[in-house]
Design a protein around this nucleic acid. Structure first.
Lengths: 334, 334
DNA sequence: GGGGCGCGTGTAACCGTTTCCAAGCGCCTC
DNA sequence: GAGGCGCTTGGAAACGGTTACACGCGCCCC
C-alpha cells in the first residue's frame, strides 16, 4: 500500500504534523525553509494525501454526487458530459449513481452519498416531489433536474416539455398533417407524461380530438419499432408522427420505411431531445432539440452557487426551452 | 445539516456507540432487544451513516475509480454503462474522472483517487506503460484498459486493434476495392496508432503499398468531414474508406454523399468500434464492432477479483477481438 | 529595559466510524 | 460453591488528516 501518511512526512522533515500539513496546503505562516524541507520529504516518500481523511476533517469533499435514472444512450451521456465539463473547471470530482429506474434505488443511491459529497444533482423523472422532499438529506445542497414538480425547497432545472410538445405538433400541422400519432414515453415518467399532455392539448386545439392517436412506448428503440408496426396497420392512414424521444423516432422511421411509408412524403416525423444521432439518419430527423450538455453544466453551476452562498437559497425553477429543429424528416414539399 | 451521528443514536437508545455500530451493521452478538432499540432510535432520528468516516475506519470505501480520457460520445458512454452495470450488481459506487486527453491530468486524476477508492480502472490510450508504472499507486489494485502496452505489473484488457484493422481492409479488398483511404485517429493515441499499423500492413500485403493513402483525423466528427473533402479531390479516385472510428466514418460518409460519392456503389466504407449510431445511418455503416459495455463489465469484474484475492496477481493481458459487421455501406452488389 | 505583539511551531482535540480488548454477568459443570 | 466459559456490553484506540490554542522567541516602542 502506498501507505505513507503525513506523519511519515513530518518525521522525515523533522517537523510536527501540523507544520507538515500547513506546508503542504500552502497555508499561511510557514518558513520558506520548513516548507521546502516538507515538500522535499513528501516528494521523496511519494506522499499522496488520503482524501477520505481530509474530507472527514475538513468537512468537505470536493465531490458532487450525481444521481441519474439510467446511463443508457446519448440522452444521459450528454448530460454527464455537461456536468463533467463544469465540474472539471472547478476541480470537482463526480460520484456517479444510477438508480436503474427504481424509486427504492433512488433512495438507496441518495443515502449512499452522505458524507462523501458536498452537493447533489438529482434527476429522477419517475419520483414525485413528495418523495424527494422526504429523501433528500436536509443539510445537503441539491439541485433537482427535471422533476415532476419542485418540492418547493430545492432549486430545479426542468425541461419545458409541455411547450415543446405543442410546438412539435404545431409544426406537423403546419406541414399539412391531418392525422397524427404520438409515440409516448413510459407512464409515470414526468417528461413522458408532460409531452403526452402537450400533444393532447395541441391536437385537440388545432385539429380536433379525433385527429390524434397515442401509441404506448417506453423511450426504447424496441418500442419505436413496435409503434411503427401499429402505425402501418392504421386506417385511415397516419400522416404525422411525434415521438416522445429521438431514439424511438429513429427506430420508428427506419421501420416505417421498411413497411413502405417513407418520410417525409408519406409521413412527417419529429422526435424530441435533439441527440446527436438525429442528424445522421436518413432522412435527417426533425426534433425538439435540448442542449443537454448545457443543462448539466447549468445544474452544476447552480449547485456550486448555492454551496458557496451562506444564506438561504430560494427554490427557483429554471425552464429549459426546447428548440424546434426542422430537418428532412418533416419537411413537406408543400 | 443532517448532522446526526452515531453518537446521537447511541444516546437516544441508551447504549454505547460501540453497540450502536454493531447493531446497525448486523454484527454478531447484540441482543435482539438492543438491536431493536438502536434501530428505532436511528429511524426516529433519520440517521444516515457518514460513509466517508466509515471508509476511513474500515479501510475500504466500496467505491472504484474510473479514469477515462474523455466523456464524449457513445464510445465512452457504452464503456461506462458496462462498468456501471457490473458495479451496481456488486453494490459498488463509481468515482468518475476525466483527464481530458492530457497526461498531466491523468496523473492528477489518479492522485485524486487515493483514499477514496478500493481500486482503479484506467483507460488512457495516450500514455505509455512507463508512465502508468510510475503513477499508479503501489498498493492500489488497478486494471489498465486498452493501454499502449502493459506495464508488466497491472492486468490489462486491450482491444486487438491490429487484427481488427487488417480484417477491415481485407473485407474492403474482398468487395473489390483497389485504392483505399484510411482516416486515422490522432497520433500518439495507442488505439489509433495500432489501427494505422494494421491498415498499412494489410494494404501492403494485399494490394501493394501504393494502394493505401492515409488522411489524418482525430476521431472527431469534424475531422471525418475534412477527410471527405480530401477524398473527393483525390485522383485517381478512392473506392474504399476505412475510418479509425465510427464517428468519423459516419460524418465522412454523409459528406461524401453530398459531394456525389455514394456508398456503397461509388465507395465502400467501414468504421471501427460498433457504436449504436452506426446501424441507423443510411446506408447502415459496416464496422469492426466492439462490445464496449462488455469490455467495461469485464474490466470491473477483473478488478473485483484481484481486490478480493489476497495473493499476488499476475499481470495478464486479455484481448478483446473486434467482430466484422457487414452492413450496407460496404456491401458491393458484385 | 520591560511589556506587548507577531510570527513560527508544536500539542492535542476533533471529524464519525469501526473494532480490539477488557470487563460484567449469568449459568453450567465439576 | 468456585472456577470457567460464553455472551453482551462499554471504553478507548485507531483511521489520516486539519486546525484551535498555547507557547517560545525576537523585535519594536515607549
Amino acid at each position: 500500500m502506498s501507505t505513507v501518511t503525513i506523519r511519515d512526512v513530518a518525521r522525515r522533515a523533522a517537523v510536527s504534523v501540523a507544520s507538515a500539513s500547513r506546508a503542504l496546503n500552502n497555508h499561511s505562516s510557514v518558513t520558506p525553509a520548513t516548507r521546502q524541507r516538507v515538500i522535499e520529504a513528501a516528494r521523496a516518500l511519494d506522499y499522496v494525501p488520503h482524501l477520505g481523511a481530509r474530507s472527514l476533517s475538513r468537512g468537505r469533499s470536493n465531490t458532487i454526487g450525481v444521481v441519474l435514472p439510467d446511463l443508457f444512450g446519448e440522452f444521459f451521456s450528454e448530460i454527464i458530459r455537461g456536468i463533467d465539463y463544469a465540474a472539471h473547471r472547478r476541480g470537482l470530482q463526480l460520484l456517479l449513481s444510477n438508480m436503474h429506474g427504481s424509486a427504492d434505488e433512488t433512495e438507496l443511491a441518495i443515502r449512499a452519498m452522505r458524507g462523501r459529497v458536498d452537493g447533489l444533482l438529482v434527476m429522477s423523472p419517475q419520483v414525485d416531489a413528495e418523495f424527494l422532499g422526504r429523501n433528500l438529506p436536509k443539510g445537503l445542497p441539491a439541485i433537482v433536474m427535471n422533476a415532476a414538480a419542485s418540492d418547493g425547497t430545492h432549486p430545479t432545472i426542468a425541461i419545458d416539455n409541455l411547450a415543446g410538445a405543442r410546438e412539435a405538433v404545431a409544426h406537423l400541422v403546419a406541414q399539412g398533417c391531418k392525422r397524427i400519432a404520438h409515440v409516448t414515453g413510459p407512464r409515470g415518467n414526468a417528461d413522458a407524461d408532460a409531452r403526452r399532455a402537450g400533444f393532447r392539448a395541441a391536437v385537440t386545439e388545432l385539429l380536433g380530438a379525433d385527429a390524434g392517436i397515442e401509441i404506448e412506448g417506453d423511450f426504447s428503440e424496441a418500442s419505436g419499432i413496435d409503434a411503427a408496426w401499429q402505425i402501418l396497420s392504421q386506417r385511415p392512414h397516419i400522416d404525422g408522427v411525434f415521438a416522445a424521444n429521438d431514439m424511438m423516432a429513429v427506430a420508428c422511421m427506419a421501420t416505417l420505411a421498411e413497411g413502405g411509408m417513407h418520410a417525409p412524403d408519406d409521413v412527417a416525423i419529429i422526435g424530441f431531445d435533439g441527440v446527436p444521432i438525429a442528424q445522421y439518419v436518413t432522412p435527417a430527423l426533425s426534433t425538439m432539440a435540448l442542449n443537454l450538455a448545457e443543462l448539466g453544466e447549468r445544474a452544476l453551476e447552480k449547485l456550486v452557487a448555492i454551496t458557496e452562498s451562506e444564506d438561504q437559497v430560494e427554490a427557483t425553477t429554471e425552464m429549459l426551452k426546447p428548440e424546434l429543429v426542422i430537418r428532412a424528416s418533416s419537411r413537406r414539399h408543400a
